[in-house]
Nucleic acid binder design. Sequence first.
DNA 1: ATGTTCATATTCACCAATAAGCACTTCTTT
DNA 2: AAAGAAGTGCTTATTGGTGAATATGAACAT
Lengths: 143, 143
Amino acid sequence: MLIGEYEHSLDTKGRLIMPAKLREDIGEKFVITKGLDGCLFGFSQKEWANFEEKLKTLPLTQKNARNFVRFFLSGAMECEIDKQGRFLIASNLREAGSLEKEVVIIGVGTRIELWNKEKWHEYSKQESSSADEIAENMDMIGI
Amino acid sequence: MLIGEYEHSLDTKGRLIMPAKLREDIGEKFVITKGLDGCLFGFSQKEWANFEEKLKTLPLTQKNARNFVRFFLSGAMECEIDKQGRFLIASNLREAGSLEKEVVIIGVGTRIELWNKEKWHEYSKQESSSADEIAENMDMIGI
DNA sequence: ATGTTCATATTCACCAATAAGCACTTCTTT
DNA sequence: AAAGAAGTGCTTATTGGTGAATATGAACAT
């Protein structure tokens, strides 16, 4: 289970540390893609296979679905973690995720997400302030 | 059953004593997350597993669900109690719970809560003054 | 009261994770 | 062939997490 929030920075070559606590779960090789809400997604090989399966079931006949599939697959790349715990993010993905220097890496259960630090704080500030909504959701799933 | 109110302080590295009376129930490993009303929640592994299962069923395609899952999982971490009865709280969670030095730990049945001491006293003062109101609500659940 | 035990507080030293800089290779472009 | 860009790997310094040692204080028994 991937959880937690970590802050690290890209080096001059566009590499990023994979936080030690996520390394085991994400695996030595994993896949990153363009994500939703302006971040990048990262999947372990297992979860990626899972995700691919789901994409395959979408009807090619629907434009929506075609777009959705294109978005994820065209924006995907395989990453490998080096001996020092870093991985390289291709420049097109760095751009897609607005990653410049400071990056926030979060674990979201079955995937990780990479965020531009400022964007993340903006986003999470906004979200956690809607505590009532959160409480309602908690109700829904029974906490 | 987790009950009681305890007051302890963070050491310079951000570690906190788990009160002896809570240790057995919460377990050696447990999970803390951002909570509501400005405190942190702590769940035993069993309670957390339950919660995780439910989160997994939420759809990636809905923004609401994404927000909710992000809030809890990115704000969660697994803690382990060391031989001396302490556990480390990651700095982002210390910040989220406004924990500086003095911390109040309370047992709330299925979970514990960590509060900034001052905030807790403020909150509980305010709440206990409305004890009548609470009593009325008890009606609701048939006490 | 005295000694004993247990829970907690505090400090220090060590080790692992990370940040940052640099050198080397490969590939592309000119 | 030379220069530049991009990718890979190494080395060093720093930070922060972990464990050990010790001190304090409360609860309890004698």
